[in-house]
């Protein structure tokens, strides 16, 4: 049995090694995109059961975003929803024989964490400007700047380590048990792995939303109110 910490390089494109996790990610992307395209081909005002199920999913996600952030869900729906769906499908891909989930590899989880880190910056700057976003590090007072910077790094680090540890450990345990007693015995552990995969996807998405919301709210709170109406005083002067 190979170590789950090692990545299997399938082929090389120039200097870039293409690992099994990357190929699996591509397959998951293809399945998700093609499936989404097929599912959303005929959307109508009178929904079918399929459309109603899809709308229920989106409405549930919107509700979660709204309840978590209190903000309109539209700007965050694509990023948070895709994170959740991708991590969920990636976690559950361990059920396919011979497939290791991409989220059981450090690179994938680290990439997701980096994206969350960058999205926090992006949404923070978009909400409050660069100044507003930078001021979030000085909240509640400038003494907290080093700690806030450290926290912004460590919380993302903890996200990807948590996801990696849970998924990798599941795969590791199932691999060990399967090597010892391959018939029927791993099934309960695989069921548990399904639950773990769902919970981890949910936690990752909710934490990402919370971090983004924190940056957006702090940035918006520090941003001065801008009056878009023309000022007669300026015109007169």
């Amino acid at each position: 049995m190979n170590s789950p910490l090692d990545s299997t390089v399938l082929f090389q494109i120039g200097p870039v090694p293409i690992t099994q996790a990357i190929v699996t990610t591509w397959a998951i992307m293809a399945i998700l995109v093609i499936g989404a395209f097929l599912l959303t081909r005929r959307l109508d005002l009178r929904p079918t059961r399929r459309q109603a199920a899809l709308e229920l999913m989106v409405a549930t996600l919107d509700t979660q975003i709204t309840e978590t952030t209190g903000a309109a869900p539209a700007p965050y729906r694509g990023f948070i929803g895709t994170l959740f769906v991708f991590i969920l499908v990636a976690n559950w891909s361990s059920l396919v024989p011979g497939i290791d989930p991409p989220t059981a590899k450090l690179e994938t989880d680290a990439a997701l964490a980096v994206l969350v880190f960058l999205s926090v910056i992006w949404f923070g700057i978009r909400a409050g400007g660069v100044g507003g976003w930078l001021k979030t590090f000085a909240a509640p007072n400038p003494v907290m700047i080093p700690l806030n910077i450290l926290q912004s790094l460590t919380r993302v680090f903890s996200m990807f380590v948590r996801l990696f540890g849970n998924v990798m450990s599941g795969v590791f345990v199932i691999g060990i048990v399967a090597s010892l007693a391959g018939l029927l015995v791993p099934i309960p552990l695989m069921a548990l792995d399904l639950l773990t995969g769902l919970v981890q996807a949910y936690i990752f998405a909710v934490l990402a939303m919370v971090f983004i919301t924190s940056a957006v709210e702090d940035g918006a709170r520090t941003q001065p109110t801008i009056d878009l109406a023309p000022s007669p005083t300026k015109k007169d002067s």
Binding site: S7, I18, T25, A111
Partner: peptide, 10 residues
Amino acid sequence: WGLGLQAINV
């Protein structure tokens, strides 16, 4: 490389 590629993929 894998990290960057996965980030781009996502």
